[in-house]
């Protein structure tokens, strides 16, 4: 582009949207315990998660697309977490940071949820107690790939279902919608 002096590029809208979605996560840090301190390290200057496009931390579920659960979730917190997840708009993803959020960790106890996937779906599990910032950044990069894959998959599914509808309507003679 720079060689020809042109300042435009042709692409499909889907490609552009994919590129934007996977490179600008707006995480909601649901930090409760020790992992939240490591999350703070990750966003601080030393590790600087903005290099990977995930630094726009939002504390409102309505403004964010990645729910980053950092810390132990117990039975008292469960309903809160579920409500926050439900309030987030689609598309949304969940990173479970640390052993406690993934599986309850070493708290096999009367008040601790044995992994947040008891109540909400999880896309990326980051192991560690707590995970190092490098570990969390790796998890974010994994999520990036997953987002790209998911969107591709979603589009294919949409196309196929449309094709199917068409063939069905041809076969039955009903008008296509």
């Amino acid at each position: 582009m720079s060689m020809t002096g042109e300042s435009w590029v042709t692409t499909t809208f889907d490609t552009l949207e994919d590129w934007a979605a996977r490179n600008s996560f707006w995480p909601f840090p649901f930090g409760t315990a020790c992992c939240a301190i490591e999350f703070m390290s990750t966003v601080s200057s030393h590790y600087d998660v903005s290099r990977f496009g995930a630094e726009v931390v939002r504390f409102s579920p309505r403004q964010s697309d990645v729910l980053l659960v950092a810390g132990t979730i117990n039975d008292k917190m469960g309903p809160v977490l579920k409500k926050i997840y439900d309030q987030m708009a689609e598309p949304k993803w969940v990173i479970s940071m640390g052993a406690c959020a993934c599986s309850g960790g070493f708290y096999r106890a009367y008040h601790v949820m044995q992994g947040i996937d008891e109540i909400i779906p999880v896309d990326v599990y980051v192991p560690g107690c707590p995970p190092t910032p490098e570990g969390l950044i790796y998890g974010i990069l994994q999520l990036k790939e997953k987002v790209a894959r998911d969107r591709e998959h979603q589009r294919r599914m949409n196309r196929e279902s449309k094709d199917q509808e068409k063939t069905q309507s041809v076969n039955t003679g009903a008008p296509t919608v």
């Binding site: 409760t32 315990a33 132990t72 117990n74 708290y107 106890a109």
Partner: peptide, 11 residues
């Protein structure tokens, strides 16, 4: 409080 009670003493 109690949103992070994780049963230290029982554990």
């Amino acid at each position: 409080i109690g949103y992070l009670h994780r049963c230290f003493e029982k554990m």
